[in-house]
Amino acid sequence: MTEDDSALSEFAPGLWLADGPVVDGALGFRFPTRMAVLGLPDGGVLVWSPVALTPDLRRSVDAVGPVRQVIAPNGLHHMFVADWAAAYPQADVIVAPGVQNQVPGLRVTADLRQAYPAGWEGVLDCVLIETKIMTEAVLFHRHSGTVLFTDLLQQHPPGWFRGWRGLVARLDGMVGVEPAVPRKFRVALRDRAAARNAVRQILNWRTKRVVMAHGAPVTHDAPTFLARAFLWLRP
């Protein structure tokens, strides 16, 4: 796949994935991008963590169903949300805390710190995990049994980061044998008790799969994987 090409593919019942271009982060770190399209009961779709909006990707999404909602699930994944909000003016724009500050003038329908959209009941579950770096909205798509993480779980392939960035990535836990919570987020938790409660809710979901923006999806024994990934947070 080239950096300006993307394709929507079915990943699970009622859930599609698309990989977008590689984007530049702070200090020269570069990151792959991934978004998900979630089916809603009325036949419409929710676009999670939108990647660059290309004509081909737009046609693929429109073929699945009308875009009802667009969500930016943390303050680090805001780069393309305004483009999607402009392309789909009828869609609700839902943001995690901090996103609106990153995108001045963004048309926001709901901030997840205040309330969850009424249409999510019985369809999507959501918990917030707050760090001093960002607050992430972790979603659970009940129909497909999929938990969606943006940055809290990551697994970049060996060699993705090079030189001193590669060393930092290894020390931070961004590169490893399986997806993990980077150490920078672990030490930046605002309230460990609140985070434990959020993770407890996540572990109680009937998970079949885990999707993350930066790493291969987990499709085998996902509940055990999640318990292992957050073992460090136990008292």
Rank of each mutant, 00 (worst) to 15 (best):
M1G: 10
E3M: 09
S6L: 10
L8R: 07
D19Y: 02
D19G: 13
G20M: 07
P21H: 00
P21N: 06
G25V: 02
L27K: 11
G28L: 11
P32M: 06
G39V: 08
L40Y: 03
D42W: 12
V45C: 14
L46E: 06
P55Q: 11
D62R: 04
R68S: 10
W84N: 05
A86N: 09
A87F: 11
A87W: 07
Q102A: 14
V108G: 03
A110P: 00
R113P: 01
R113Q: 11
R113D: 06
A115I: 00
G122S: 05
L124Y: 05
I129N: 04
E130F: 10
I133Q: 07
L139T: 08
H141V: 06
T146V: 05
F149V: 08
W160M: 07
F161L: 03
F161R: 01
R162D: 14
R170M: 04
D172L: 05
D172Y: 06
P182Y: 12
R183N: 03
R183P: 00
L189N: 08
D191R: 05
A194C: 08
N197W: 00
I202A: 11
W205F: 13
R209D: 03
V211L: 14
M212G: 01
H214F: 03
P217A: 00
A222Q: 11
L226S: 06
A229P: 06
L231G: 00
R234M: 15
